[in-house]
Each structure stands twice: as structure tokens, then as C-alpha cells.
Design a protein around this nucleic acid. Structure first.
Lengths: 97, 97
DNA sequence: GTAAATAAGTTTATTTTATAAACCAAATTA
DNA sequence: TAATTTGGTTTATAAAATAAACTTATTTAC
């Protein structure tokens, strides 16, 4: 009836990050920070978690002389996201079945 | 872009409880426990939170001689749930806009 | 009839998680 | 060259979820 929701995705900020990356394909740290309204510290932690899980890949390069962190969703992350959405529907689609 | 998700509903167990009550109209504690697979303790805590928020109403009666806790969703809870679903769509409907 | 087990919860404690605050290094601006 | 900004990371704190322990009453088994 209520299958488990992937705890890595069932988090407001991590879900927002994934959502952003799903449509943007790739995004830089400051952009994600701005779009989500998260603090840098919180964002850094959550990106690290998504990265550790293999849901996103994180590339640390330079933009001119400034550090630049680029994030991309991986195939694993894509699958996890889709699965999360499907699972969540069991909770949301009340009375539709 | 990513409006805040009602923290009271963005919780696996509480969401499951609400979801159940949305389609069942009213339900007894043991039934909710069985359907969600939650432990009694956890369920008790989460029901209390939903009740305090006014999302559900809890009636404590007796079934013969045994205590019987009945839960129902309130209009406030209904609205909150619907709003949560709407908000969540911003996170889930990637690339559909 | 009484001891053990079950039912229906609640309370308290522990663990996990999210968040914020503090910090760091380099670069830019005043 | 001192102060500020940018782009983060690390560490500490606050909040939340979860589980474990406990309570009270009730059957059920001996």
C-alpha cells in the first residue's frame, strides 16, 4: 500500500536539486543555490550526499580563476528520481483507484 | 520555483496516515498501524502531531471494553493535503513546463 | 483463580537528519 | 594593502523520526 520512499530523495532540498538537474542537465553551485534559496552550507552537504549515492556527479573545475562546481544527474539518479515519483503517487492519488 | 513543502506532511508516515484517511474517511488506530506498517509508538507520535496541527481529529472511545482510537481528516487537513500535492508538483513535473 | 500472553496505546530515549553557523582560501575592489 | 566578495567546506546545533520501554486493561491457558 505504502512502499518506502527513497529517503535520499524525500528531502525538500535534495529533491529540489534533483528536480533542477533533471530539467537543466547540468548546473553550477551558485545557480542551484540561487534557485533553491538554500544556504551554501546546507547545499554543500546535500550535494555531497547525492554525489555519494551516485545520483549526481560533481565536477570541480575553474571558471577563469574562480572555483566552479558543476553538477549533473547520473543515469542512476534519473532512475531513482523516476522511481521516487512513481512510489509517491501511491501516497498522493487518493481515491483515484 | 520551489515553494516550501509543508513539513508536517512531508514525512513518510504522516503522509501515509493522511492519504489513508483521505480515502477512508475514518479509521481506527490498529487499522492505520497495519496499513502503514508503522510501530505503535511511532504512529502514536505522528497522529498526535497531525492532531495538534488540526489536520485530523482523534476520537477516543471504547469498542466494547477495549479502547478505540478513531481518526478523521478535518477540512483544514484536507486543504493542507491538497496544497501539499499541488506544491509537490513543482518538484516532480520536470520538463513539463 | 491466577499466571501468561495479547491488545491498544503512551512516554521516553536514541538515532538520524536537516540546517545553520563558523570557517577557509583565493580573488576582487576600495 | 586592507576590506569585501565569491565559492565553497567543516563543524556544531536544532529538529525530527524512530524505536524501545512502559502502562493498563483483557483475554486465554492452565
Amino acid at each position: 500500500m505504502f512502499p518506502n520512499l527513497d529517503p535520499l530523495l524525500h528531502s525538500e532540498l535534495r529533491l529540489a536539486v534533483m528536480s533542477l538537474l533533471m530539467s537543466a542537465d547540468e548546473a553550477e553551485f551558485p545557480y542551484i543555490k540561487e534557485q533553491t534559496g538554500a544556504t551554501a552550507g546546507n547545499l554543500s552537504v546535500q550535494i555531497e550526499k547525492l554525489s555519494t549515492a551516485g545520483y549526481i556527479e560533481v565536477e570541480k573545475t575553474f571558471k577563469g580563476k574562480k572555483p566552479c562546481t558543476i553538477c549533473r544527474v547520473t543515469p542512476t539518479g534519473l532512475k531513482a528520481f523516476e522511481n521516487y515519483v512513481k512510489t509517491l503517487k501511491n501516497y498522493l492519488e487518493v481515491g483515484k483507484k
